[in-house]
Design a protein around this nucleic acid. Structure first.
Lengths: 296, 296
DNA sequence: GTCATCCTCTGACTCTAGTCAGATAAAACG
DNA sequence: CGTTTTATCTGACTAGAGTCAGAGGATGAC
């Protein structure tokens, strides 16, 4: 099984890199090095320009090397580097008009080369190729996600929960008001009787979920959320399974959770995972369904 | 449509290269450069070693550069280069035992890294990824194939036809004896009344087919062949369609072709393409089916 | 106000990858 | 047999990509 997959991965990689190698060579056809092109592309990603420090992190470059690349593009008149008014040690690079045009040209070239890659395929074959690549990409992305337990009051945890609340507010017909919930529950999800997990893709948090005590033998799962761009890849199931393991590790025998009727995907997932409806066990005004699962 | 595909291609490429970039870096982890690793891998592909000339073609390297890489690996004791007894200008590189071990280690590392790429995926997800990549690879390969008309006595045409005959010999229960056919027909497939096409993937010929005159208004398609590694991708259909276009360009109104009952895929394809069975129109001892199609 | 730290830049390197112009020896051609 | 062609090798280069050790200004902590 695994062998089959790795064989396919390796065969594909050889094919892809030989073809895309040509593609990237033509990137160089602009008379600019690949490094400079990548940089130009990255700086133009956001209209306000990019901090040198962020560029270094994002592209993984040495500070000296990056500085040299910036000087080169500056000499070409493609960008300007100014000190950041808020902290004059930092510097911010912004594209000039010429730089923006050069970037658009790069983008155009990249588009052409992708097109070159599919030329000679029938429309049906193109569609199949697009689907296959999209599927592969989603699977690759999810394969690199790692689950990690962090304190519920860590900045990343707070950000994730905030995004979760924002989504509830958008989806619930009457909106959602976090009010006290935002801060009141945090303490409950800290060890030794609670836990908070995040799923990371690289450094970005793409899913989260927490456990808090309900009573001596029951833990409650709360704040389960998956970034909309990362849904449909089984990530929710992974987080749920890991939270259940966490509940067991914390010494509870049963898991409770509640949810709103609007979140139908969630309800379906809980059902698949073996959760069964029970009576209302709390006074959460947004909850319409209450579930339990025994971990025996 | 096309836009969708190129978007998927570009998104995928970014994802893939960021992930595989890490993969290839670890290739370098052996203390050998990527170029040297590729070379080592290529030489070890066939047990008898590889001709320097073939390596140059296969890897697309400059002769000076390749020579230097070979010297480096030789110094490391991983390979030996000896003159080819048949032509002492040429040289043949063979791996030493140490070289073979180093290559096995590379292979192992590549396998591990492919595995690393799929770790964290469930068995079902792995299967889906493998399938998606295999599909994509086949489509990419076929997308890069170009059809080209060449003289039927060009070395590449002769080689392709020879491989076709070899396959017939293997597949026909009583074998196949090209005898006179090999040379006699060549003249007929030359312009202005005939034509010979090859399909190239890079420099390699992966399919071929010819047209020769049958009578004033009828052309005959012969020697249609697709490399076994390249079947099932619609290449046969493309060659056939192009041959029909060629027949029309040469001024014929009808196409004839014959085939052996063993070649069931071919018969199915002719049927799909609109060919209808007719009476025996020649004395080809290997033919059991005769088809015609009007190009009106 | 001083000192440590942070951020960026410059200069001096290295390594890989690759090109180009001959030199040399063997084979093929006439 | 001499000439041309082919196959490989050596030497001299170049460009890209990146590392490393400071220099120097700006900021933050005390």
């Amino acid at each position: 099984m695994t062998d089959d997959t790795t064989t396919a991965v390796r065969a594909f990689n050889q094919s892809w890199s030989s073809r895309v190698g040509v593609l990237e060579e033509s990137f160089l056809g602009t008379g600019r090095s690949l490094g400079a092109s990548r940089l130009l592309f990255e700086i133009g990603r956001e209209p306000g320009g990019a901090g040198v420090r962020e560029l270094r992190g994002g592209l993984g470059l040495d500070s000296g090397y990056l500085s040299r690349l910036l000087r080169g593009l500056e000499r070409e008149g493609l960008l300007e580097v100014h000190p950041d008014p808020a902290d004059r040690r930092r510097r911010v690079a912004t594209l000039t008009d010429r730089g923006a045009r050069a970037r658009a040209e790069l983008d155009q070239r990249s588009e052409e080369l992708a097109q070159h890659l599919v030329e000679g395929l029938s429309p049906g074959q193109r569609r199949r190729l697009g689907e296959a690549l999209a599927t592969a990409e989603r699977l690759l992305r999810v394969g690199s996600v790692r689950l990690e337990s962090i304190p519920p009051d860590a900045p990343e945890a707070v950000t994730a929960v905030r995004r979760y609340f924002a989504e509830l507010d958008a989806r619930f017909p009457g909106g959602f008001d976090p009010s006290d919930a935002a801060t009141a529950d945090v303490a409950g999800m800290a060890p030794p009787r609670g836990s908070f997990l995040v799923a990371r893709a690289g450094e970005t948090v793409v899913a989260c979920g927490g456990v808090q005590p309900h009573d001596a033998t029951t833990g409650e799962i709360k704040r389960m959320w998956v970034d909309p761009d990362w849904r449909g890849l089984g990530l929710g199931g992974r987080v749920l399974a890991e939270l259940e393991a966490e509940v067991a590790r914390l010494g509870y025998a049963t898991v409770y959770l509640d949810t709103n009727g609007t979140l139908s995907e969630a309800i379906a997932m809980y059902d698949r995972a073996g959760y069964r409806p029970i009576e209302r066990y709390n006074d959460n005004p947004y909850a319409q369904h209450w579930f339990a699962k025994s971990l025996a």
